[in-house]
Structure formats: structure tokens, C-alpha cells
């Protein structure tokens, strides 16, 4: 078993933090785990991405070229990384920051209005955790308790106040996806359905 993730967006959106949470949660659940940040100027506003590999044996390549899962936080990242997602893979995108879709019928796309949800909760910085929650709802590999433990671990000691806030945002993401089952379809269904790609565009718009 191996699961490869690419997480990409702007600096300041919590991209690297989210990657570390997934990687640490993987370790908590007994898997081998690896996280690599992208190089470059990743201060607020620049592009940021990271890659995570979880595996039940020693991780071979820590570099991810064809992810099983892509978590996408802005349009340039969608354009750059969604073509590389493995057929049958998963894309979770922040629909209220991205006005296009991957345009692929062989992957499952979940367009989640994570920014609106985080803003509405009064915690704009938690949109990364809303996306993590959405992933939890659609990919059973990681358990919520392991992700919770990971959030405790990855949050620096002086910011532990944010743990509860982050956990609420995580559950917001889970709940939203469960309440909107039609917003994402499985890769198999999508591939079988010629209208799948069109449906995805509709989802992204409908979620705004």
C-alpha cells in the first residue's frame, strides 16, 4: 500500500502545515511517512507546495510526480498539478478560490468552499483544515483520531490554543462533504459518465 499526496497553493494558506499533519497522522497509524517541502521563496503570497508519501513499507522515492491525492488551494496549482494525478485519484480543490476544474473524467473531484466555511467560522486561517476534513470524508486511509493527534503534534507549543479551532475546522470539512454527497463523484463513476467533467465544473460553480 502506498499513498502519494501533492498539496499546493499560496504561501500563508497552511500548505506545509497540512502536509505535516497528514504525514504525522500516517506515522500515527503505523505507516512509514515522508514529507518534502518545495524549495523557493514561500513567504506569504508566494507559491508553496509539499509532497507526502505514506507506505506500509520503506518509502522508495520521497518525490511525488503522480499523486494519488492532490489538495489544491489556488488556480495556478490546479493547472500545474491536476494533469499529473493518477487515473482513479482524488482532487480536493478550494472551490471559492478556483473558478475552473481539472477537466478530467478519470479522477474524483471534490470542490469544497473551504474559504467560505473557514471565514464563516471566524477563523480564515483554518481553510487548510477544512480541506483536510473533506479528505477524511472521502478517503478512509487516515482516521480522524490519528489526524487529531497529528494536529496536536504539529502545532507549536505557543499556539496550542489553535488546536481546538483546527479540530472544529476539520469537522466542518467532514460535515460539508457528507452533507453534499453529489458534489463529488468517484473516479470510476466519472470515467463511466461522459458528462463527468461537465458535472465537475458545475460543482465548482455550484459550491460558490
Amino acid at each position: 500500500m502506498k499513498r502519494e499526496y501533492k498539496i499546493a497553493g499560496f504561501g500563508g494558506q497552511g500548505i506545509l502545515f497540512l502536509g505535516q499533519v497528514l504525514a504525522y497522522a500516517g506515522m500515527q497509524s503505523g505507516l512509514e511517512s515522508c514529507w518534502i517541502p518545495s524549495y523557493g521563496p514561500e513567504m506569504r503570497g508566494g507559491t508553496a507546495n509539499c509532497q507526502v508519501v505514506l507506505s506500509d513499507r520503506r518509502v522508495r522515492s520521497p518525490l511525488v510526480y503522480n499523486p494519488d491525492v492532490a489538495l489544491i488551494f489556488n488556480k495556478p496549482s490546479l493547472e500545474r498539478f491536476s494533469p499529473d494525478v493518477k487515473p482513479g485519484g482524488i482532487v480536493v480543490l478550494v472551490s471559492d478560490l478556483i473558478d475552473t476544474s481539472p477537466g478530467r473524467s478519470d479522477i474524483a473531484v471534490y470542490a469544497v468552499p473551504a474559504k467560505s466555511l473557514a471565514d464563516a467560522a471566524g477563523e480564515p486561517a483554518t481553510l487548510n483544515m477544512v480541506v483536510a476534513g473533506a479528505l477524511l470524508a472521502v478517503d478512509p486511509l487516515l482516521r480522524r483520531e490519528d489526524v487529531e493527534a497529528a494536529i496536536w503534534k504539529v502545532t507549536p507549543p505557543h499556539r496550542q490554543r489553535m488546536v481546538a479551532v483546527n479540530l472544529r475546522a476539520l469537522d466542518q470539512g467532514v460535515d460539508w462533504v457528507r452533507a453534499h454527497p453529489a458534489e463529488g463523484t468517484t473516479g470510476a463513476e466519472n470515467a463511466a459518465n461522459a458528462a463527468g467533467a461537465v458535472g465537475v465544473v458545475g460543482m465548482a460553480k455550484g459550491a460558490r
Binding site: C34, I36, P37, V59
Partner: peptide, 10 residues
């Protein structure tokens, strides 16, 4: 090298 230095692993 820079990759092994910067990456996190179990």
C-alpha cells in the same frame, strides 16, 4: 544533500 536535509520522515 538538500532534499534529505529538508525532508521529514519517520
Amino acid at each position: 544533500d538538500g532534499i534529505i536535509g529538508q525532508m521529514m520522515e519517520t
